[in-house]
Amino acid sequence: MTQLALVIDLNVCVGCHACVTNCKEWNTSGMAGPLSDFNPYGADPTGTFLNRVQTFEVGTFPNTETVHFPKSCLHCEEPPCVPVCPTGASYKRKEDGIVLVDYDKCIGCKYCSWACPYGVREIDEKQKVMKKCTLCVDRIYDMGLPEKERKPACVLACPTSARLFGDVHDPESAVSVAIRESSGYPLMPEWGTKPSNHYLPRRKTQLRIHDDELVRADNPLKKERLLPKPDKSEPSLDDVTSW
């Protein structure tokens, strides 16, 4: 069984928000759209986004880490948002595990958003239906796109390629390998929702310099010493031979 998902590499995410606005851009004019904005030019502008990037500070100065943290629907394997939906508008696709909302059925009761611990569902306050990340289902299967581009918009946009996309049930897929080899983890495992999206933690590269590396024979400073020249008064062959 296939379970498509995103794997987000916090080790390289610089918090640029490309995935946020590219997601909005692709989806507002796609099957998930429009993604409405309220007060777009006024006080407290607010709108529907399917993906957000947040920033956390970990630790205290000077040992502070700044962590940029993108989050969209995690396409849980046990999605609590689905069974609670009274209309069946929220559903999880059998074929690829994508969790979707059928806008034609959704009554906008918001119950599913209560049932999602991750805060990734957003009601579109104009269209009055629940919206969420679709894993760009209208891109990834679009045979009209070149194969390389059959990926979620956010994945293609991400300048640091911090967003990997693939089948987490296929142990050979790049996402599974990344999860395995870079200690990928799910969010809030305590609820048993089994999120399909995973996060890769920060990894640090250190350099250790051994003292002996600092004092090497080829130290160029040695070259600056004057070339040894014997004193003129020192004995030489001149003194002992007479050709």
Binding site: A43, F49, R52, V53, T55, F56, G59, S113, G119, E122
Partner: peptide
């Protein structure tokens, strides 16, 4: 967010004018 540290504080939720959430 999956980070083990005693001191974690959010600095930005990613938008400023509020959202459904």
């Amino acid at each position: 967010i999956g980070i083990r540290h005693n001191v974690i504080a959010q600095k930005s939720q990613g938008f400023m004018g509020g959202s459904f959430n």
